[in-house]
Each structure stands twice: as structure tokens, then as C-alpha cells.
């Protein structure tokens, strides 16, 4: 469902962030993307969300080359991708419920659907009872669950988790990873960018390792260090 074909991203007057990357991810896969800071992981995410365009190459998602999309199509691309970030990116003055519903308000879902779906995803992430609370009252792990609930509210076929456990202690991190696995098991393709060696090593999922903008390793049932 996702294909990088000879993708290169060079910033003007800067280093080459991605160098001739070719990568293919099938529907329903769970993929870890690992690598040092500056290896090109963030660029990968930005290219997928069309925040940036590659210098060369094609990125095919669901049969469409997203590098050739017009500006007006980009919002619809992003609706098909759920994103979770290390820093949660929640609105502090909105309740948990409002934060999740926002993703659906923005795509103009009907109020009834929003109501139903928000309740469902909050149940899924185990926060149904905290729906009316503000994010500030929640722990880091809970906040990331809210962000995850928001990411899947529009039922995307594809979720990118960019260092989702980076700010969490190991135990909480495992809770989030289990949720990601559950969502993946329900059919959602999952791309998790991470530094968490322990998690990668114990799950033995597919691992794509980046170094200096190149894919240096791509293994089924891989580990953090090759």
C-alpha cells in the first residue's frame, strides 16, 4: 500500500536527509523505523504527510503518487493517515473528548457520528471515564492515548507513530505499544519511528534501519541493532 521509489530529499545548503530510499510496506504490516537522530526518520514522516516534497523519486500511497498531488488534495491525503507525535500535541484547554472530536469536526463528520465514534475510540484506548477531563490532569501515557484516539478517530488505513514512547517511562511505553499492536491487528498499517531498543528487540517485527539517509537494513522479525 506504501512505496518509496528511489526517494532522495536534499535540503538547500544542507545535508542529504534521505538518499535514494526504496521501501515497500504492505497493507496491515507493522514496521519499526529505527536510526540515530539525523538518520532521516523525521524526513520520512514529513514526506509521507506531504509537509515536504522529495527532491527526487516517487512516494506511492494507495496507488497514488503523493509527490504529484495538488495542494487541494493534501488535506484528503492526511485524512487517510493517522499521526501520533512524541509531544502528544493536544489542546490543553479542551477536554479529552473535545480533543478527539476535533479531528472529526475538521473533516466535517456529522455530530451523531462524532459522538458515537469518540465514545468508541476512547473506550478502545481505555479513557472512556476521563472523557471530560483536561489533558493537563492526565499522565503522559494517558495523554498519548488521547492523541492515539484522535489519530484513529477518522479510521485511517495507515498510522504513523513518530517516537510515540519517547517521553514515557518504559512501563507506560509498553501500554502504548500494546495499543498500537491492537490497532494494527484490526487491519491498520502501522509505521512506528522509534529509539526504544527494548521494544523493538522484544517484538521482533519488521525493522527498517536508516543511517545517513540510506536504508542500511530492512529485516522481517528484526532487532534494533543488526
Amino acid at each position: 500500500m506504501l512505496e518509496f521509489r528511489k526517494v532522495t530529499k536534499a535540503y538547500p545548503n544542507g545535508p542529504i536527509a534521505l538518499n535514494d530510499v526504496t521501501l515497500s510496506v504492505s497493507q496491515g504490516e507493522f514496521v519499526f523505523v529505527v536510526g540515530q537522530s539525523g538518520a532521516g526518520k523525521t524526513t520520512l514522516t514529513k514526506l509521507l504527510l506531504r509537509e515536504e516534497k522529495p527532491t527526487q523519486g516517487q512516494i506511492i500511497l494507495n496507488g497514488r503518487d503523493i509527490t504529484k498531488m495538488r495542494a487541494g488534495e493534501i488535506p484528503y491525503l492526511r485524512r487517510s493517515i493517522g499521526v501520533v507525535f512524541q509531544d502528544f500535541r493536544l489542546m490543553p484547554n479542551w477536554t479529552v473528548e473535545e480533543n478527539v472530536a476535533f479531528a472529526m469536526v475538521v473533516v466535517e463528520a456529522s455530530p451523531r457520528l462524532i459522538h458515537r465514534r469518540v465514545a468508541k475510540v476512547l473506550e478502545l484506548v481505555g479513557l472512556a471515564r476521563k472523557a471530560k477531563q483536561l489533558p493537563g490532569k492526565l499522565s503522559g501515557g494517558e495523554q498519548q492515548r488521547v492523541a492515539l484516539a484522535r489519530a484513529i478517530a477518522n479510521q485511517p488505513a495507515f498510522v504513523i507513530a513518530d517516537e510515540p514512547t519517547g517521553n514515557l517511562d518504559p512501563e507506560t511505553a509498553w501500554g502504548i505499544v500494546k495499543l498500537l499492536l491492537e490497532i494494527n491487528a484490526a487491519g491498520t498499517t502501522m509505521l512506528m519511528v522509534t529509539h526504544a531498543k527494548q521494544i523493538v528487540d522484544s517484538l521482533r517485527k519488521r525493522v527498517v534501519a536508516l543511517e545517513g539517509g540510506c536504508v542500511v537494513r530492512d529485516e522481517e522479525r528484526g532487532v534494533y541493532h543488526g
Binding site: L77, R78, R89, R150
Partner: peptide, 16 residues
């Protein structure tokens, strides 16, 4: 700006 950046990630159109 925070709200706007979230809007963009979840796929709000420019006019929205």
C-alpha cells in the same frame, strides 16, 4: 498556531 497545526495534521482543508 497550535490548533492550526493540529488542524493540518488531521486533514483540514485550507478554507476550513
Amino acid at each position: 498556531r497550535r490548533e492550526i497545526s493540529i488542524m493540518r495534521y488531521v486533514g483540514a482543508t485550507a478554507w476550513f
